[in-house]
């Protein structure tokens, strides 16, 4: 069985040489703001997102969408930017991962994504509503992240995730998982099946910065 052993070791060597990376690294950085808007009767009305992209990616966008070559993005060009992002994000639930007591909450697609270009930076805005009424009760979690890791959605300060206005009956925490720590802790759980569906809520727990509301 010397042959078998040798072949196994050779296969292992081959795998070692070619095992690809688990995660891509982000090429795009966005400074994000999330506002949870409430209805009058204490339910979630909408999630309002603002993302300000880094100047490097923004310059790529400028080069890509500047149809008339005037080195600025005019209104119709910005509209096109918003349209492209809107279409592309649909596949990734607009980077939103909302949970009610651990169960995924369906959100409606935003009607549009508005784009603006200020100080060499692309800024996008959009709003997404829960499909069904989402009352402020129990534990709600609102995570935002790019499951493909192309974009890093950064909430640099806790205040960048807010509820307006936060009812007295609710407590707000911002959770920033450390993916290294999380992976180290869950090493045995990180099976292939786990990686197969990057948009699953399990993954978002590892990677998404999230706003958690505990309401009584």
């Amino acid at each position: 069985m010397k042959t078998t052993r040798s072949i196994i070791s050779a296969a292992a060597a081959l795998l070692l040489a070619t095992t690809p990376n688990a995660l891509s690294h982000p090429h795009v950085f966005a400074e994000a703001n999330l506002e949870v808007a409430l209805t009058g009767d204490g339910a979630v009305e909408a999630l309002r997102h603002v993302w300000r992209f880094d100047d490097l990616f923004s310059s790529t966008v400028l080069l890509e969408f500047d149809k008339n070559s005037d080195l600025t993005l005019d209104d119709d060009e910005l509209e096109e930017v918003g349209k492209v992002i809107h279409e592309s994000l649909a596949e990734f639930d607009y980077f939103q991962f909302v949970e009610n007591a651990g169960k995924a909450v369906k959100m409606t697609p935003p009607e549009a994504i508005l784009a603006n270009y200020q100080d060499n930076q692309l800024i996008v805005f959009f709003e997404s509503k829960p499909v069904e009424k989402l009352a402020l009760q129990g534990t709600l979690s609102f995570g935002v992240y790019d499951p493909t890791f192309y974009t890093a959605i950064d909430f640099s300060e806790d205040d960048n995730m807010s509820v307006a206005p936060l009812p007295a009956s609710c407590k707000k925490t911002v959770v920033r998982p450390d993916p290294d720590e999380a992976i180290a802790m869950n090493q045995d759980k990180l099976t292939e099946a786990f990686f197969e569906d990057p948009s699953s809520n399990d993954m978002s727990k590892l990677f998404a910065t999230r706003l958690e509301l505990t309401c009584s």
Binding site: L23, T60, E64, I85, Y150, T151, A184
Partner: peptide, 23 residues
């Protein structure tokens, strides 16, 4: 890419064998 602008690099999620090093 998820944003539809620029292209993400096709990534091949690893099997976890070398997760520590790759991370």
């Amino acid at each position: 890419s998820s944003l539809g602008i620029g292209s993400n690099e096709a990534t091949l999620p690893a099997t976890g064998m070398f997760a520590g090093l790759l991370n």
